[in-house]
Amino acid sequence: MSTLFDLSFFVTVPFWALMILAPTWRWTRTIIGSPWITLVPLVIWAIVAVPVLGAMWSLVTSPSLPAITEAVADPAVLTALWAQIIAWDLFLGRWIYLDSRDRGIHPLLMAPLLVGTILLSPIAFPIYLIVREVAGRVPARGSSAPQEASIPA
């Protein structure tokens, strides 16, 4: 179980490395543009979660702190939970990366925010939302002027 626990993070490292270390490389956007990158840790989640699905189902349908505390003592449940967190962080980091590239936010500002998303996404995500607001509206492609929000008629 320890191997799958570790693997659930390590399979995401290449995607994080692309977003942080090679954000402007043309293949980075192509690779990160696919939501399928989150499938890798979710496969690990499925491998670990299927055998304990009954226990996990009762946790999500009738959650309580004592029940969750007891459940995470099971390495399989904890590993499944970890893989789910890792997949979610990657999905969130992917959105932050793509949004920041569309908005032209400098990669040197984004690198620490993406590292923060790996480590503590509940803190990094609101910080990114503030950066996003400060950065302003998305410029139109091929233009340096802010793009006006369009309201459908």
Rank of each mutant, 00 (worst) to 15 (best):
L81N: 12
L81Y: 10
L81D: 09
L81T: 15
L81P: 03
A83L: 09
A83G: 06
Q84G: 14
Q84S: 15
Q84I: 13
Q84N: 14
I85F: 02
I86P: 03
A87F: 08
A87N: 08
A87Q: 06
A87H: 04
W88N: 09
W88H: 12
D89L: 05
L90M: 11
L90R: 03
L90Y: 10
F91Q: 14
L92P: 06
G93A: 14
W95E: 11
I96P: 03
L98F: 08
L98T: 08
D99W: 04
S100I: 04
S100N: 05
S100C: 04
R101C: 07
R103Y: 01
R103E: 04
R103D: 01
I105L: 05
I105W: 01
I105Q: 03
H106M: 08
H106E: 14
H106F: 06
H106G: 10
P107E: 11
P107G: 12
P107S: 09
L108M: 12
L108E: 11
L109S: 11
L109G: 03
L109E: 09
M110I: 10
M110F: 04
M110T: 05
A111S: 13
P112I: 05
P112K: 13
P112Y: 07
L113A: 07
L113E: 08
L113C: 07
L113P: 02
L114A: 03
V115M: 07
V115Y: 00
V115I: 15
G116S: 02
G116V: 03
T117S: 09
T117E: 04
I118H: 00
I118N: 01
L119D: 01
L120H: 10
L120Q: 08
L120E: 08
L120T: 14
S121T: 10
I123Q: 07
I123T: 07
I123C: 04
A124S: 12
F125M: 05
F125K: 00
F125G: 00
P126G: 06
Y128I: 01
Y128C: 00
Y128A: 00
L129E: 12
L129H: 13
L129Q: 15
I130D: 05
I130W: 03
V131F: 09
V134W: 12
R137M: 09
R137K: 14
V138S: 13
P139Q: 13
A140N: 12
A140G: 14
A140Q: 15
R141P: 11
R141M: 13
R141L: 14
